[in-house]
């Protein structure tokens, strides 16, 4: 899980405004204590309804969002993102979960989250991930990269294929390295490219994951009881 460590993104001059959405008060307070001083927690919520209200009111830069939440129609984190759809341009969602189940990860990413980390992540790592998401980048854990490779296949794109349906050779390389536990910085070093280029590739993969209606992705998800 160290992939988001390293030099990391540029720290913003002003503190990042964050809302924490999780139904466990113990976890919220623990997370608050773990976060960097440069992150300002402006609101907390424990249910879907509370979360949508707090987000609309506070308009934070980043929402740390638990995937499984009570309330609403039972959609959990996905429903919160859908309910805050008008804010998606300014507010970024970073999904947190105790679960590594593929359906949870992919569902919340496809709903619009900019990244996915598990709750066992350390305070420094989550701080880094928040900065990265606030800066507009995507946060891929090794496991998420593994899911992407599994879903899109490990063969590079043909020219004839729809651009959204397959990863380019370079994107595949980046995903593989992230799955192997490389940080963005290490990926950049390994592939002789800049960190910025790595971030661009990762964001492109995230976009494909969110937008692709690819046949195999559907099949893959169905096999994991996603749809």
């Amino acid at each position: 899980m160290n992939n988001v460590q390293g030099t990391g993104p540029v720290r913003p001059a002003q503190p990042v405004r964050v809302v924490i959405v999780d139904d466990h008060a113990i976890f919220r307070s623990g997370l608050k204590a773990d976060l960097d001083a440069n992150i300002q927690v402006v609101g907390e919520a424990a249910t879907v309804e509370q979360a949508i209200a707090v987000i609309a009111h506070e308009r934070p830069e980043v929402v740390l969002l638990d995937v499984h939440l009570p309330g609403g129609l039972g959609g959990g984190g996905r429903e919160v993102i859908a309910g805050s759809a008008t804010l998606l341009g300014s507010t970024k969602f970073l999904a947190l979960s105790v679960s590594d189940a593929a359906e949870d990860v992919v569902a919340v990413i496809r709903a619009g989250a900019r990244g996915y980390v598990t709750k066992t992540i350390s305070g420094a790592e989550i701080t880094d991930a928040v900065f990265r998401v606030a800066g507009g980048d995507a946060v891929f854990s090794p496991r998420l990269a593994g899911f992407v490779l599994d879903a899109f296949g490990t063969a590079p794109a043909d020219i004839a294929d729809d651009e959204l349906d397959r990863l380019s050779a370079r994107e595949l390389e980046v995903m593989r390295l992230i799955a192997r536990g490389y940080s963005y910085k290490e990926v950049a070093k390994e592939l002789f490219i800049s960190i910025k280029t790595v971030e661009t590739h990762v964001s492109a993969v995230l976009r494909k994951l969110q937008l692709s209606s690819r046949h195999e992705l559907t099949k893959w998800a169905a096999e994991r009881r996603l749809l």
Binding site: N2, P142, L149, T154, A155, R176, A179, R180, G181, Y182
Partner: peptide, 21 residues
């Protein structure tokens, strides 16, 4: 520290990467 293990099987070829820090 924590260890990252990545297993990839494609077209019958199996690769395992074990990385530490």
């Amino acid at each position: 520290g924590s260890v990252s293990v990545y297993l990839e099987v494609s077209d019958g070829r199996a690769e395992v990467y074990v990385k530490d820090r």
